[in-house]
C-alpha cells in the first residue's frame, strides 16, 4: 500500500518528548508510525492521535537492535512507501558522580542514546533514499551536549555525540536525490518523566528547574513538539546540520 499522506516515524513515542512529538505530528496531518517497546503505552498514543482525527500505527521494536531497524525499514517501504519525517527521540538518562559510575553504565547509556540515533539515522536515510522521499530527520540531543552538566558524565558526552553525528549525517543526506535534511533538536530541562524519575516530582525540584532558565517558567513537552513541527515542515526547507536549542535561555549564558 502507498499512502498519499506524509509519513512520520517517531521513536520513543510511548512517553515524554517522543509521545508529544507523535501527537503533534498527528495534528499536523502526518500518518504517524509510533515506535516503542511497550505495546500497551503504544496503543494509548495511537488512540490519542486517532481521538483527534489523526492516523497512526504502533510498531514494537528496540531502537538499539539493528535487526529491528531493518525489519521496520522493510515494513515502511512496503506499507507506506515513503518517509517524510523521522524523529529519533528514544533515549535514556542517569545522573551520578563519575567516581561512582561504572563502565557498564557508561556503555549502556551510550548504546541507548548514541547507537540508537546512529541506527535510526542510517535506516531512516535508507528508507528515504529507496522511496525518494525529501525527508527531514530530527535527532533529539540535549543542552547537556552543548554545555557541561554536573553528574552527567555519560549523558552529556552522549548527547554531544548526537549533535556532532547529526552534522556529519546532514552533509551526507544532502547528497541524496532528493536531498534529506538532518538537524539535532536540543531541549534544556523539560518537565517530563525523565526529570521527575531522576530528581523527584516536587515543588522544590520544579523551582530549581525553573530557576536555571532565563525565562521564568519550566519547559514543557509541547515546547519541544512545536520545534519538531518547525524542523519537520517546509518552513525549514533550507535548515540542515543545525543544533537547534529550546531551553528557555538556560544555556545562552
Amino acid at each position: 500500500m502507498m499512502v498519499a499522506l506524509k509519513v512520520a516515524l517517531v521513536t520513543g513515542a510511548t512517553s515524554g518528548i517522543g509521545r508529544a512529538a507523535a501527537i503533534r505530528l498527528g495534528r499536523e496531518g502526518y500518518h504517524v508510525i509510533c515506535g516503542g517497546r511497550n505495546a500497551e503505552r503504544g496503543a494509548e498514543v495511537v488512540s490519542a492521535i486517532e481521538g483527534e482525527g489523526g492516523i497512526a500505527r504502533f510498531h514494537a521494536f528496540d531502537v538499539m537492535e539493528e535487526e529491528d531497524w531493518a525489519t521496520l525499514a522493510q515494513s515502511i517501504i512496503s506499507r507506506e512507501g515513503r518517509l517524510d519525517v523521522l524523529v529519533n527521540s528514544a533515549g535514556g538518562f542517569f545522573s551520578k558522580p563519575l567516581p561512582d559510575t561504572s563502565l557498564e553504565e557508561f556503555r549502556g547509556l551510550w548504546t541507548m542514546d548514541v547507537e540508537s540515533v546512529v541506527l535510526g539515522t542510517k535506516y531512516g536515510l535508507r528508507i528515504m533514499r529507496d522511496t525518494r522521499s525529501a525527508g527531514s530527520i530530527i535527532n533529539i540531543g540535549s543542552l547537556a551536549g552543548l554545555i557541561g552538566i554536573e553528574d552527567c558524565v555519560a549523558y552529556s558526552p552522549a548527547k554531544a555525540a548526537v549533535i556532532q553525528f547529526s552534522k556529519v549525517a546532514a552533509l551526507e543526506a544532502a547528497r541524496l536525490d532528493p536531498p534529506v535534511r538532518v538537524n539535532s533538536l536540543n531541549p534544556g530541562v523539560i518537565w517530563s518523566d525523565m526529570i521527575t524519575q531522576s530528581y523527584g516530582d516536587s515543588d522544590e525540584v520544579r523551582a530549581f528547574v525553573m530557576d536555571g532558565n532565563a525565562l521564568q517558567r519550566v519547559g514543557e513537552l509541547e515546547d519541544i513538539a512545536n520545534a519538531v513541527a518547525y524542523l519537520a515542515g517546509p518552513q525549514s526547507r533550507l535548515v540542515t546540520g543545525t543544533a537547534m536549542v529550546v531551553d528557555g535561555g538556560r544555556g545562552a549564558d
Binding site: 514543557e220 515546547d223 512545536n226 520545534a227 529550546v246 549564558d253
Partner: peptide, 12 residues
C-alpha cells in the same frame, strides 16, 4: 510556537 526559546540563534 517558540515561547520557550530565547537567547538563541536559528541558522538557515
Amino acid at each position: 510556537e517558540s515561547s520557550f526559546m530565547t537567547g538563541g540563534v536559528s541558522v538557515i
